[in-house]
Structures are given as structure tokens and as C-alpha cells.
Design a protein around this nucleic acid. Structure first.
Lengths: 216, 216
DNA sequence: GTCTATAGGTGGATAGAC
DNA sequence: GTCTATCCACCTATAGAC
């Protein structure tokens, strides 16, 4: 399964790593998304893969390096998904719906956004991972800002404040909904919350794909 | 300093613990709110207090017990703050403003909500702590639901969906804004995001305390 | 590339003196 | 209540054989 929902968004020349390294990253990613960076060890990964801890160090010399690679691959994968959305000829509301679907897919997988998870542990992370998190959130914020601006111009989206400010609200709302849903609710409750976030922007349901109609 | 912003909301008969236990909880709380449950150790607390690890075990036999007490005290403190808001004669919009101020205070203290932080590590926490988190989020959701329902009846708040659903959106948005702000932005950016969350409900700025005027 | 073996450190936790 | 001393499990990481 891909790093995100499962859709392979173009072959996407991922960071050139061996097949073994990819398998390690897959397991580490799942552990990081469910238990956090400080919540798993090389022993956990080794056990799941049926290898020894020492062999992991051959591919990733340190846990810090593994963590850095984890974020880099996630960002690449997520960025690819955003590119795919941009390449499809669709309206700003439809773009936002697809954006939310990315998060929906993660939740249905019983995980939460890798970077949202790691953001909680920010103060304990090595500097390269901290930089990676900032870059990931900026990537999201930039993409959302562009979509919001386009939507405002075409009157297909309605919101107060600047596109940049609103992008931050949306990003926070989705990350937070995942965070809370994992302990308090579930994937279905996340979906409901996410739909309300879309509604607030004037994005209708799928039965209204042009997004012109607002409810409330 | 109190568990929250700093306002002492009534003497609030906190869980009956010794002065030493209180000091331990204070330090542990700060560490948990900045580094997470898996991001600090008894050694960290002992160092900050100038005592030995062994003496900590006298007050809290296990880290799991310390974590449980941490959440219990936080919930008690937070619940007290909500009671204080309810006892003051103010409108639903004003109640929400004060609710957001609680979170603002936490952020200005360079922390994030204890339970939002621990929610990320949910899968790694002992069962009593998991139950505590659920209870905290339910407390928030119930309180917000009641305020939203009251606001809808008096037409001082406007929102789509049920009060319960909207409460979840608000809670997630605030928790997520804190989460993201700590790595990507700062307390000031959290404040901006939180104000937009209020605006979306038709809550105006302080210059308009009755909350009747909505913008955009 | 993967293994065995181990180093060196830190985690939570306990026994028993004071 | 707090200390010293210690236990043992686990952590990341390395050396060197295969």
C-alpha cells in the first residue's frame, strides 16, 4: 500500500532506495503513524520484517536518518498526490474534496497523517526532521492558499480572512480532527467533521460537483 | 502557575495530594505538554526538582500512575474553568470567546493542550490514560454542544449540522491549530486561526461583545 | 546484505538505610 | 520522605564473521 490512501499517483520517482529500504520505510511509516516516533524502535521494525536490528542499520545508519527519510518520502508522495489533483481539470471545490479524500484514506487505514503525528513530538525530534515537518506544512498551506484564492476569484468558494490564514485553519482542522478522532471517535467521525470543514467553505456534496450551491 | 492559563478558577478542591506530589505533577505536566508522554522520564523530572528518581516513585509508584494523575488533574482544572464560564452571566458568543482564551493561554505558555498532545500517543498509553483522554474530549464536546445549542436558539450563533457535530469540528480545529502552530507557526498564528474558527460561528471580536454582528 | 555478539547508555522500578 | 545502590529490560549503535 502506498504512503497515502492507496492510489498510486503516477510512478513518481521516489527517493532512489533499495527494495529492502523500501520495506523498512513501509513498516516504520505504519509504526510512526500509529505510535509516534518515540513509540517504536528498531526492534519493532526488525520483528515485523523477520530480520535483525543490525541489518536495519545497514540501510539507515541511525534512527534520526530513518526518520528524516520517512518524512522525505511522505512529502514526496503527498506532493505527488497534490500534483495529480492539479493536473485534473476540476474546480476549486472539487480540488478541496479530493484533498480531504487524501486524509480520509489515511484515517480509514487506522492511521493519522505522519506529519501531524510527528508534530506532537516536535520538541524531541532531530533538527532534520523538524525542518521536514515545517516543509510539509508549508507545502500544504501553499497548495491550499492557491486553491482558495482561485475559488474566491471564481466565486466557487466563500471564506473570511486571507487565503493564507484560511489555509492554516483548514490544515489545522483536518489534522486536529484526525488527532481527536483516533482516541475519541473513529474514521467515520473524522469524515463527518471533514465534511463540515468543506461546507463552511461553500463546498457542496458530491451530488453537486460544481460546488456553486451552498447550504446553511 | 495553574494547569491552564494562570487564572485560578476558584480554590477548586483538587485531587488531595501532598505539596511534593503537586510539584512533581507541575513539572511532569510541563514536560508532557511540550515533549509528550514518551518524551520525558523520571530522570527528567528528578533533575528539574533536584531530587532522585527513587523519591518520585514514593509519590507515584509507576509512570502509568503519574500519567493517570496528570490527566485527572488537568480534567479537573479544565472542568473548573468551564464551570467558571458557565457561572458568569454571558452570551453564547462570549462563552466561546472565553473558551478559546483558555487555549490561547496554553499556547502563550509555549505548551499545547495536555490531552491533545497525549492523543497523538494514544496507542502507546496505558488503558487508564486512554480512558482519561476520552473523558476529557467528551467533557469538551458536551460543553461546546450545550453552548452551541443555546446560541442557535437565541440566534446568536450560526452553524450547519448538529451541535454535537459542530462541537467536534471546533474541538478538532483548536487542537489541530495548536499542533501545527508549534512546529510551523507560533502562538500568534494559533490566535489568528482560532479567531477564524469563532468568526465562522458568527462570533464577532471583543468590540462587539453581544456577538450579534457577523462579518462576511 | 544479513548475521551474532556486544558495547554503552537510559528506561522504569525496587530494597533497604537514614 | 528522601536517599544510595542496584536490577533488569530495552534502547541505539558498532564490530566483525559469513
Amino acid at each position: 500500500m502506498s504512503a497515502l490512501s492507496g492510489k498510486k499517483a503516477a510512478p513518481a520517482r521516489q527517493t532512489p532506495v533499495s527494495e529492502s529500504a523500501r520495506a523498512i520505510l513501509d513498516v516504520a511509516e505504519e509504526l510512526a503513524q500509529t505510535r509516534g516516533y518515540n513509540g517504536f524502535s528498531y526492534a519493532d521494525i526488525a520483528a515485523k520484517l523477520g530480520v535483525t536490528k543490525a541489518s536495519l542499520h545497514y540501510h539507515f545508519a541511525s534512527k534520526a536518518e530513518l526518520g528524516r527519510a520517512l518524512i522525505a518520502r511522505y512529502q514526496e508522495s503527498f506532493g505527488g498526490a497534490l500534483d495529480t489533483i492539479d493536473q485534473a481539470p476540476c474546480t476549486p471545490p472539487e480540488k478541496l474534496r479530493r484533498y480531504v479524500e487524501l486524509y480520509d484514506g489515511v484515517m480509514r487505514n487506522d492511521r493519522m497523517c505522519l506529519c501531524g503525528m510527528l508534530a506532537a513530538e516536535y520538541a524531541t525530534l532531530p533538527a532534520p526532521m523538524q525542518k521536514g515537518l515545517k516543509a510539509f506544512f508549508q507545502l500544504n498551506q501553499r497548495w491550499l492558499s492557491a486553491v482558495l484564492e482561485e475559488g474566491r476569484k471564481s466565486a466557487s468558494l466563500a471564506f473570511s480572512g486571507t487565503p493564507g490564514e484560511r489555509a492554516e485553519v483548514i490544515l489545522g482542522a483536518l489534522e486536529g480532527a484526525m488527532l481527536v478522532a483516533r482516541s475519541y471517535g473513529n474514521a467515520a467521525r473524522f469524515h463527518v467533521a471533514a465534511q463540515h470543514v468543506l461546507e463552511d467553505l461553500g463546498v457542496g456534496r458530491k451530488s453537486n460537483p460544481d460546488g456553486k450551491g451552498k447550504r446553511k
